[in-house]
Amino acid sequence: MTTIATAPIGPQRAGLSDLGPIAQLRAGRLGRRLPQLYVGLVTYGVSLAMMVRGDLGLAPWDVLHSGLIRYVPITLGQAVVVMSFVVLLLWIPLREKPGLGTISNALVVGFSADATLALLDHPDSMALRIALMVGGIVLCGLASAMYIGAQLGRGPRDGLMTGLARRSGRSLRLVRTGIEVTVVVIGLLLGGTLGVGTVLYALAIGPLTQLWLPAWTVQPRSLGSGGFEGRR
Rank of each mutant, 00 (worst) to 15 (best):
M1P: 11
A5I: 15
I9H: 07
P11H: 12
P11Q: 10
Q12K: 14
Q12A: 13
R13K: 15
R13I: 06
G15A: 00
L16A: 01
L16V: 03
I22W: 13
Q24I: 04
L25Q: 00
L25V: 12
A27E: 02
G28V: 11
L37Q: 05
Y38L: 15
V42M: 06
Y44K: 00
A49E: 08
V52P: 01
A59M: 10
D62S: 12
V63H: 08
S66T: 10
S66V: 02
G67Q: 03
V72F: 13
Q78P: 01
V81S: 03
F85A: 06
V87Q: 04
L88W: 09
L89E: 08
L89V: 15
L90V: 07
R95H: 14
R95V: 09
L100M: 14
T102H: 05
I103S: 03
L107G: 01
V108P: 03
D114C: 00
A115H: 06
A118N: 14
L119M: 15
D121Q: 15
M126P: 09
A127G: 10
L128G: 00
A131K: 00
V134T: 10
S144M: 11
Y147L: 07
G153C: 03
R154E: 05
P156V: 05
T162G: 00
S168W: 12
L172G: 09
L172F: 14
R173K: 15
R173N: 13
L174Q: 09
L174I: 10
R176W: 01
T177F: 09
T177H: 02
I186E: 04
I186A: 13
G187F: 07
L189R: 11
G197K: 09
T198C: 12
V199P: 00
V199L: 13
L200M: 14
L200E: 03
Y201P: 01
L203F: 14
L203D: 02
A204T: 06
G206N: 01
L208Q: 04
T209K: 00
T209C: 09
L213V: 08
L213H: 04
P214L: 08
P220H: 10
G224A: 06
S225I: 10
G226Q: 03
G230C: 02
R231M: 09
R232V: 10
